[in-house]
Design a binder for these strands. Structure first.
Lengths: 200, 200
DNA sequence: CGTTCGATGTATCGGACCGATACATCGGGC
DNA sequence: GCCCGATGTATCGGTCCGATACATCGAACG
């Protein structure tokens, strides 16, 4: 899961750890995702041991990134990680492997979703529908609590449930829009201004 | 954090592990919280070693729960955990200790919030404002990404950010309602039907 | 000119927590 | 009589976090 995120970011451009972490928290952080160095560096070393990334700038057979690497590293920069060809294969493999862990955790879904542009349409749909089902289950659970046991809850607990339920309902609606868009054309969000959420 | 949750639930009524876990995921689960047995049982043993809970039914000086315990256990039930007097003190202590870890994690905030009915008003306000500040920071981060780097993101990543931003904005609004209510009267959510969120 | 300070950068350790798993018992359906 | 799903206790390996310790760089300030 962290593997996927790191490989995906390094696929776009080589980076060192610090920058990598920033991108992880900003680009993928929307859906609750913040990785600490205590996870990042061991993972980087493991990815390196498995041959999916290499330490040091691309070894001259990748001149395409010659314009970007210096921007990120200066020359004071320390360890720059670059994805290998095997790493790119591994990335695609992880992208398609959308098991239950993809839907269950916020972070897992967020990371997969962030790389949807490089995911094949069938997998995209599978992930979105799996996620929707998962959130619907959560929603039903909260509805049950609120309808069947509301009088046994104090005001704060009830308000907490109400807010959680509302968040679930919004997410389901969001997912349904995305699924509908996915089924129609491939274009997920046609350039119709920035206010399609005003429909409700 | 898990300590607080367990002590709070056992404060209401003695329970065994299985039931405890169900309550943890339903009552406190609204704000993302699901504990596994791999955390629950070691924590129970630690709480027991520290003298905050005891194994076995309440030792006869607590006849008040005589109606509830059999409902939960039958007589086939195994280990029933009961909070001690020291445990109740510890619970109050943890309730008031609202450090940054209270605002930072979803789970931490959710658990504290669920016990607001037993938290003093000053602490309630402190927690709500701390949480609001935290979510506002997240929100600003996402706004920056969307306004300053939107053209560098693909459609899916942008949509992910947009959805995350919207969720943050909703949560801030929710927190502000709660804070306003907290400042006015103590009654957090007066019985004005169930639709105060339609104001927007 | 030095020096202090915040941003950048690499790295590790203890511990919290998860996910899977193993087992055992109970009530009820077939 | 037998199996099966819900209830119930417990552990283990592994993932990830939070705190921390460093070291370097550019800029601000006296």
């Amino acid at each position: 899961m962290l593997d996927l995120a790191i490989l995906g970011l390094l696929h776009e451009s080589p980076m060192h750890g610090y920058e990598l972490r920033k991108q992880l928290t900003t680009k993928l952080g929307a859906f609750r995702f913040a990785i600490s160095y205590g996870s990042l560096y061991p993972t980087l070393r493991r990815l390196q041991a498995d041959g999916w990334i290499t330490e040091g700038a691309p070894p001259a057979d990748m001149p395409a990134s010659a314009e970007e690497v210096p921007l990120l590293t200066g020359k004071r920069g320390r360890v720059v990680y670059t994805i290998t060809a095997e790493g790119k294969e591994r990335f695609q493999e992880l992208l398609s492997a959308a098991g239950p862990e993809t839907y269950d955790s916020e972070a897992g879904f967020g990371v997969h979703f962030a790389f949807f542009a490089r995911t094949d349409p069938a997998t995209r749909l599978r992930i979105l529908e799996g996620r929707r089902r998962r959130v619907e289950e959560r929603r039903e659970g909260m509805r049950d609590v609120l309808s069947r046991a509301a009088e046994r809850l104090d005001t704060y607990t009830r308000e907490l449930q109400r807010h959680g339920l509302e968040a679930c309902e919004r997410e389901v609606r969001w997912l349904e829009e995305l699924i509908a868009n996915e089924r129609k054309g491939n274009t997920p969000q046609p350039p119709s201004a920035e206010g399609p959420e005003r429909s409700s």
